[in-house]
């Protein structure tokens, strides 16, 4: 039954202008397969929210996309280019950017250096003003070490660092984790603003339903390493989604 609904929905929501095309992606840690053939297409300027309980494969999908874990089979195609077997830095060069779970900023480097680390891939030398327009606090904190920032500030830094690479597709893994509610609202607004200004496609994995409904154009539910449900924000049914998320 689940498969039927996917076919119907993807026929409705498939966009003509596809940026990222994931085809039959299988990913395994050693012998244990975690993703069993994920198919997902993301349109230009679309925000897709990936939902699902812990251990269902959200983070694994993110890591496989950026190249921290190798894919066992299947393809990842970005702007028509197959990036399945490229090392991480070449995927970034091709247009992917990544904000990992736990943010993973370079804690012993200053805020400015953290943002600059994203510039090298395109040979840029100065941090674009628009990043500071989005996150003014990062300018004030420029000389502070990344590790001494608060969780919310680190999240902004991690996003700024990812945007500095000049991406077409931004991957965010559980960005609301450990962030106070008022900032979660702000984050959703910021993400939509970035999308509106730059036509960036965003995949964001999330467990907070309100944030997902706030930010998403389309919601995708992943369970047991398969996509089991998709819907646009307009047709999203909160109660149904809650059932997917509850244990």
């Amino acid at each position: 039954m689940a498969t039927e609904s996917i076919d119907k929905i993807s026929a409705v929501t498939a966009l003509p202008d596809i940026t990222l095309d994931i085809k039959d992606l299988h990913v395994a840690y050693g012998a244990s397969e975690v993703l069993h053939g994920v198919d997902l297409q993301v349109g230009r300027g679309e925000i897709v929210t990936l939902m699902g309980r812990n251990g269902m494969g959200k983070t694994t999908l993110m890591k496989a996309l950026i190249g921290n874990i190798a894919a066992r089979s299947g393809n990842i195609i970005l702007d028509g280019k197959d990036i399945t077997h490229l090392p991480s830095w070449q995927r970034v060069k091709a247009g992917l950017a990544y904000v990992p779970q736990g943010r993973m900023i370079f804690s012993a480097m200053t805020v400015t250096e953290n943002i600059e680390s994203g510039l090298f891939v395109r040979g840029g030398r100065t941090i674009p003003q628009k990043l500071y327009d989005l996150f003014p606090v990062l300018k004030e904190l420029g000389e502070r070490r990344g590790g001494n920032l608060s969780g919310g500030q680190q999240q902004q830094l991690a996003i700024a660092r990812a945007l500095a690479t000049g991406p077409h597709v931004l991957l965010l893994d559980e960005p609301t984790e450990g962030i106070q509610p008022s900032l979660i609202l702000e984050l959703a607004r910021t993400l939509r603003k970035i999308r509106d200004e730059t036509d960036l496609s965003i995949i964001v994995s999330e467990q907070v339903l309100s944030f997902a409904l706030d930010v998403a154009d389309r919601i995708v539910v992943i369970e047991g390493g398969n996509i089991i449900h998709q819907c646009s924000r307009a047709e999203a049914d909160g109660e149904q989604l809650m059932r997917f998320l509850s244990v």
């Binding site: 950026i66 190249g67 921290n68 090392p87 991480s88 830095w89 970034v92 060069k93 950017a97 990544y98 990992p100 993973m104 370079f106 804690s107 012993a108 480097m109 250096e113 600059e116 680390s117 994203g118 090298f120 891939v121 395109r122 660092r161 990812a162 500095a164 690479t165």
Partner: peptide, 19 residues
């Protein structure tokens, strides 16, 4: 700057585009 980024977190350095 790139060396220090790799020193601190190799996979993350790759994920921000450092060779």
């Amino acid at each position: 700057c790139q060396v220090r980024a790799v020193m601190q977190n190799r996979s993350m350095a790759g994920a921000v585009g450092i060779n």
